[in-house]
Design a protein around this nucleic acid. Structure first.
Lengths: 250, 250
DNA sequence: CGTAAAGTTGAATTCTTTCAAACACGGTGG
DNA sequence: CCACCGTGTTTGAAAGAATTCAACTTTACG
């Protein structure tokens, strides 16, 4: 954990807002809770579905290792990919908690998942847990809003730069990087469906970013070639804020 | 309330997914809770700020009447407007609940607001409340994701059609419509900043929608001229899902 | 009534998509 | 070992969508 702490300190020192000066890599409260109360872990191979859009959703889950993609296909066949779910994060929480899943969850990498069968019931007897769930939802909201803002205001090159930096920071915060390199299991089509572009245009924008020596994606690995330039392109409005990244005192 | 119930039944019967067949206009749990525990209501004139981005956020709030806009200005000066907050909805909930506000809240109409000074504390002693906050966050997330998908996949005309229909449904569900007309206090620039367009392009797209006899905005009122056609344009992937719209049993 | 703010229109430019075709790579079966 | 196939990536050219800039009109408000 010490390594992570150092790393996140470095990353956080980059943050525009003061409050992140004190942020630490958080030992995920919900994960801990699940470990002691319901250690039902299982693994899920890449490309397998954890659940499918429209299926009755039974449980909530915590991703322990790997990478999960949340995707929704609308009636006219458009595919939207939402914020990537990274280790430590909660998924399967939705308004109608036992109703049909509002999106599909697919493993992008071989993953390890912790099942939480009775989150609702546990929350009722454990207000702290309920609050933590609310807090996680608020964090995920911030992340989703960042993606929304990114799509709304930036061109293809900048959108991709944002996504790369955002993922890099969230992974590095967990120590899941090797220097400036991270695992990157997504296809160009996935990037396109996340950022509201066509795969062809993603390809061209990636080419430009490679030409500029900013970043490159090769063999399922993303390498940042010029971190500062990447930050400049993104506009440094990026903050490390996912449900696992900030320490709050509850 | 009976009028509302009928109305929402009509609207919900339009929903693609079965589960909404049973949805009712919800008597907002949090509002009720606040009424009995902290009836600190006050009013806020249009264009006044409830709080500003960066200011220390003290409390959470419930909007009782009016219309609140959540806006964030990034460092490079881009302005993003997030999902409109309508009567009955909760606002001011964010990861760092007593930290600097991550966006500004501005009244778009004269509003009545209920102050909730100690949401955190109340949640600790009242798990149901905490769960409701989590549930509200999940609903807001769905709405935000709908806006994200809308921006990512549709052109200007369709984005505006979506926004119009989404707002109409949420307001009609509360009985805040007059037939196919709703109050619409936003400027074209606000629409643009919500949907990731320029005000000029919004203007042109609105012109087209008017030409097609789909909808018209005039004198701060939005009128739907052809509801079915509007639904067709939007693609009927729209569901009435805000924190105040669905009844769940807790 | 006058000024500022909001809305409208046109033309040129930039960005993105579309369609079509070619290429690269990994795996399979002969 | 190689030919074959499918998936994913790359490239080009043309069409379409959205932005920019500039000018003008209308509306709102003190």
């Amino acid at each position: 954990m010490d390594h992570n702490n150092t790393l996140s300190a470095i990353i956080c020192s980059n943050c525009p807002r003061r409050r992140f000066g004190v942020c630490k890599v958080m030992v995920n409260f919900i994960s801990q809770y699940c470990d002691s109360h319901s250690p039902r872990q299982f693994s899920l191979l890449a490309k397998k579905f954890l659940f499918r859009q429209g299926e009755e959703l039974q449980d909530a889950y915590v991703l322990r290792e790997g990478w999960i993609q949340l995707t929704r296909v609308s009636e006219n066949g458009e595919r939207q990919v939402f914020r990537p779910v990274l280790p430590g994060e909660l998924l399967g929480v939705q308004p109608d908690s036992k109703g049909p899943a509002i999106y599909s969850a697919v493993a992008a990498l071989d993953s390890v998942i912790c099942d939480i069968p009775n989150l609702d019931t546990m929350c009722l007897s454990e207000p702290k847990l309920a609050m933590r769930v609310a807090w996680v939802a608020a964090c995920d909201m911030v992340l989703t809003e960042m993606y929304l803002t990114n799509i709304a205001h930036r061109n293809a090159r900048e959108r991709i730069a944002f996504m790369a930096l955002e993922l890099y920071r969230r992974l590095a915060m967990r120590g899941l990087n090797e220097g400036y390199m991270i695992q990157f299991p997504l296809k160009q089509q996935d990037i396109a469906d996340t950022l509201g572009l066509t795969a062809i245009h993603v390809n061209r924008a990636l080419h430009v970013l490679r030409e500029e020596n900013v970043l490159t994606i090769h063999k399922h690995q993303l390498t940042i070639l010029n971190y500062n330039k990447l930050c400049t392109i993104v506009g440094s409005d990026l903050e490390p804020m996912s449900s696992c990244d900030i320490m709050v005192d509850v």
